[in-house]
């Protein structure tokens, strides 16, 4: 079996595991104890999913002899990995098993779409992507996407929480503060992704900023999260209002990822779909 098909197999396993996890995490959420056995099992399975996805990515890289994010399928795979990884890294220090369902559900959807819609067999890069900036720029984008996804999950939970759902979860206030911290982490990385993208654009296309649709939406995303931070610090927005700003920011990310990559013609059309 070559590394490409081995990678595919690992992705299928990840989908299977995530489907099981989705059930386990929802059962755990409906139980009354804070860290139930079910949620611990689900947490362990999430680690396994993370390892499988990480391996799947490495194998794609090995198959093509390059960073494994050269088309939309690989980028989606890497983003799923980043989402799970962010979740797992936080879980080392904090009990956030309750967030599981809101991490696994989007990952499952994204993995499903990757396999069904976006799949491309591993291959060499198109010339436009042959640059060391691929590693720097895209890695930063993937990490911040992962973290913004966590913020999205937390924002949704917050909105349920203030309606008195999920009683055993941490207080709404704690969730709100934590989701703010996640943006504090993700925003500088996103800024770096935009800046490194501009540097790459200068060396590939002859201008550092050209309002290409992808650039425009990266800018819009940046502005929304900048507004998120400013509104919290200066005019005291928090809670519900902040949660909605976070959700709007994430909508911009999703729009940029799917709509712009697939339906809008621009310089970033590397979808390979």
């Amino acid at each position: 079996m070559n590394s490409n098909s081995l990678s595919n197999l690992l992705v299928y396993f990840s989908i299977l595991l995530s489907a099981i996890n989705l059930v386990l995490f929802s059962v755990a959420l409906s139980q009354n104890s804070k860290t139930s056995k079910t949620s611990r099992i689900a947490m362990n399975l999430t680690w396994l999913t993370g390892i499988f996805l990480g391996l799947a990515l490495v194998l794609r890289g090995v198959a093509a002899q390059r960073a494994p994010w050269g088309n939309m399928y690989e980028f989606a795979l890497a983003s799923c990995f980043a989402i799970i990884l962010s979740f797992l890294v936080i879980s080392i220090r904090k009990d956030i098993n309750w967030l599981g369902i809101f991490v696994i559900a989007p990952v499952l959807i994204l993995l499903g779409l990757s396999v069904v819609v976006l799949y491309t067999e591993s291959g060499p890069l198109v010339p436009a992507l042959k640059s060391s900036w691929l590693l720097i720029h895209v890695t930063a984008a993937i990490i911040s996407y992962g973290a913004f996804s966590i913020n999205f999950g937390l924002s949704i939970i917050y909105l349920f929480k203030v309606k008195n759902k999920f009683k055993k979860l941490p207080s709404a206030n704690r969730i709100d503060e934590f989701s703010y911290k996640v943006v504090l982490f993700a925003f500088p990385i996103w800024t770096f992704a935009v800046i490194s993208g501009a540097i790459w654009a200068e060396s590939a296309w002859g201008r550092y900023w050209g309002w290409d649709p992808k650039e425009t939406w990266a800018f819009i995303t940046w502005i929304i999260y900048a507004a998120y931070l400013h509104s919290r610090v200066t005019i005291g927005w928090k809670g519900k209002k902040s949660a909605w700003v976070g959700i709007i920011g994430y909508v911009a990310i999703i729009f940029n990822f799917f709509v712009i990559n697939i339906w809008v013609t621009g310089l970033h059309s590397y979808a390979g779909v």
């Binding site: 649709p213 425009t216 800018f219 502005i223 929304i224 900048a226 507004a227 400013h230 200066t234 712009i260």
Partner: peptide, 18 residues
Amino acid sequence: TALLLLLLVALAAIPGSI
């Protein structure tokens, strides 16, 4: 005002991408 302008600049950028 600054926040309103931030929001406006984001909104105003949209038509150019479509």
